[in-house]
């Protein structure tokens, strides 16, 4: 079985391939918890950041496991829709950092609260 060896190497561009839309983010932590390469970390507010861009392989798992459509991987990400956009036009999360107050325990969820 050479299935694993045949996988493409991660792109070593060093550029951020993940776009975050904090206004839609609820800081659930799915993206950070399930990134297979551990490239994402939480910042002091609990929001995800691409802490290690070299480790990101653009697999897109964080985008698919994000329940809030609050991040997108790759160049073909969402484009903003203009004001008064007609029905059927593209919905885009705003990228303005409308951040919520910092979480008291540093963004770590205990889940039993």
């Amino acid at each position: 079985m050479s299935g694993k060896a045949a996988r493409p190497k991660p792109a070593q561009t060093g550029e951020s391939k993940v776009s975050f839309f904090p206004a839609w983010c609820k800081r659930c932590g799915n993206c950070v918890a399930f990134c297979p390469r551990g490239a994402l970390k939480r910042d002091q507010w609990g929001y995800p950041v691409l802490a290690d861009p070299d480790r990101c392989t653009s697999c897109g798992l964080c985008e698919m496991l994000c329940p809030d459509f609050a991040l997108s991987v790759g160049e073909a990400g969402p484009k903003p829709a203009g004001a008064g956009a007609p029905r059927g036009s593209r919905v885009a999360p705003t990228t303005s950092p409308e951040r919520l107050a910092p979480e008291p325990n540093g963004g770590e969820e205990d889940g039993n609260g």
Partner: peptide
């Protein structure tokens, strides 16, 4: 591309949606 979902969401609905953080 995965981002095609933004074309199929209703633009006149309020986002983020109503579900709890992390809801499946």
């Amino acid at each position: 591309h995965r981002s095609v979902v933004y074309d199929w969401l209703r633009h006149d609905k309020k986002f983020p949606h109503v579900w709890c953080p992390g809801c499946g």
